[in-house]
């Protein structure tokens, strides 16, 4: 019976969690189709490359929005549905694992879609006005043309990032659930958000050797990645750099580093550990109790002997 329930949990939670974020993706796809048809028809050919860059930034914004919507739904469901899932005795570990799985799947899909569309768009626009593109310096986020094929791992990077954020959010949510006093809940929320943030910050600043040369990925990180982690210096250089847009502060896990993989797994583990720590034991003892001994009721023992 546990297998049937877990299957149902996977699909039920998947649909409920991803409905709104997928709507954002659908909006993006619609805009893409419209843009693809409308722009070349109605606008001057010389504007194509600039328009393409604008659309690339639009796609990036949509990705951020989809991700924020996903996290908002994730937090909402973590709070609003906790008692309900407890009542039907769904394991909190299974619930966390299912949600984590869907977050990573969605992040990968939400990156893959603009990547494919952006590549197609660039190809089409270049086909329409190849001369306009000659000499035009640009660095779009969502395009595979003229890139190292390993750029295809871009969705994986975002998926890992999604897993880390989901786990971090779950740590805070579990900490808040643990407190029973409303004031303590607020304290827990603030304290644990800071703790989680510091953990991420610390891990990211552990000096690491990039393995890109080992894996042939040295060209990989000359291309912009979303959710670019930046230290204060990076932040200032981004502010000064006119060709890159300002990305808001978030974590990026470089998949070419051991610390990136280790960090992701560590956060996922911490997500499960916080469930164990804050939810307490769920006592499911299947103990058959021998009939309690009673003073002066020795005849029952004799009955047992006869039976």
């Amino acid at each position: 019976m546990a297998d049937i329930r877990n299957k149902k949990l996977i699909w039920y939670e998947g649909v409920k969690l991803l409905l709104l974020p997928t709507a954002v993706l659908a909006a993006y796809l619609l805009s893409f189709c419209v843009f693809l048809v409308v722009f070349p028809t109605y606008y001057k050919v010389y504007e194509l490359p600039h328009a393409y860059i604008s659309f690339d930034k639009f796609a990036e914004t949509m990705l951020y929005i989809a991700f924020c919507v996903l996290m908002a739904v994730y937090v909402y469901r973590s709070f609003a549905y906790k008692k309900l899932y407890d009542k039907v005795r769904v394991s909190p570990y299974a619930l966390f694992a299912v949600r984590l799985m869907w977050v990573t799947v969605f992040c990968a899909a939400a990156t893959l879609l603009p990547l494919v569309c952006g590549t197609a768009l660039e190809g089409i626009f270049k086909g329409i006005a190849p001369k306009r593109y000659a000499g035009f310096a640009y660095n779009p986020l969502f395009s595979l043309l003229n890139r190292n094929p390993l750029y295809c791992l871009f969705p994986l990077s975002v998926a890992m990032f999604g897993a880390v954020i989901a786990a971090a959010v779950s740590i805070v949510v579990n900490a808040v659930h643990w407190a029973q006093n409303p004031w303590l809940k607020i304290v827990q929320a603030v304290v644990w958000t800071i703790i989680v943030f510091l953990l991420v910050f610390t891990v990211m600043n552990i000096p690491y050797h990039r393995n890109d040369k080992m894996w042939g990925m040295e060209f990989f990180f000359s291309y912009p990645m979303p959710f670019e982690w930046f230290t204060y210096d990076d932040f200032m250089s981004y502010m000064r750099d006119t060709y890159t847009t300002l990305r808001f502060c978030a974590v990026s896990w470089r998949i070419d580093t051991w610390i990136g993989w280790f960090g992701t797994l560590a956060f996922v583990f911490m997500g499960f550990a916080s469930t164990a720590l804050f939810r307490g034991q769920i006592n499911d003892d299947y103990v058959y109790v021998k009939p309690l001994k009673q003073k002066g009721k020795k005849e029952n023992k004799e009955e047992k002997n006869h039976a």
């Binding site: 407890d86 009542k87 939810r279 034991q281 006592n283 499911d284 003892d285 299947y286 103990v287 058959y288």
Partner: peptide
């Protein structure tokens, strides 16, 4: 709450045979 399994913070055990 303890009998239903919703509260896991207690000493002792709930018995279901």
């Amino acid at each position: 709450k303890i009998l239903s399994g919703l509260d896991g913070r207690y000493r002792g055990s709930v018995m279901k045979k």
